[in-house]
């Protein structure tokens, strides 16, 4: 039972993740806007953030950086449709725990979340 934050600019996508993870029993907050998500991290307890790299205003990596500033021990899973070595390296450097390639497989996501929360 964890507090999970999901950020993606496509609403359907975040609802999907919410549905999948709530069935696992987690408390999932969803955002489509970067600022709101960052504010939440600032003000609320968050165990895991699931961030999409391609966002409307900022880059997912930048958001990751911001959030990590606010909560350095925050666990993060990056979602991407286009994994490149750079982004992977950068994300890892900034402390992303995991990395998921879109389109997301439900099972894969559940496993990754469980695994990262267990660390």
């Amino acid at each position: 039972m964890a507090n999970i934050l999901v950020l993606d600019d496509v609403l359907d996508a975040v609802i999907l993740v919410q549905k999948i993870l709530s069935r696992q029993g987690h408390q999932v907050e969803v955002y489509t806007k970067e600022e709101d998500a960052i504010d939440h991290v600032a003000s609320q307890p968050v165990d895991l953030a699931i961030l999409d790299i391609k966002l409307k205003k900022m880059n997912g990596i930048q958001v990751l950086a911001e959030m990590k500033k606010l909560r350095p021990d925050l666990r993060v899973i990056m979602l991407t449709g286009y994994p490149t070595i750079e982004t992977a390296r950068e994300a890892v450097n900034l402390g992303a725990g995991e990395y998921c390639v879109k389109p997301i497989d439900k099972q894969e996501l559940e496993e990754k979340v469980a695994e990262i929360l267990a660390r």
């Binding site: 359907d12 999907l16 549905k19 879109k102």
Partner: peptide
Amino acid sequence: INTPLGIILGYTQL
């Protein structure tokens, strides 16, 4: 396509 595809797959699995 990846995005809607992902959502379709996701919901299907749900």
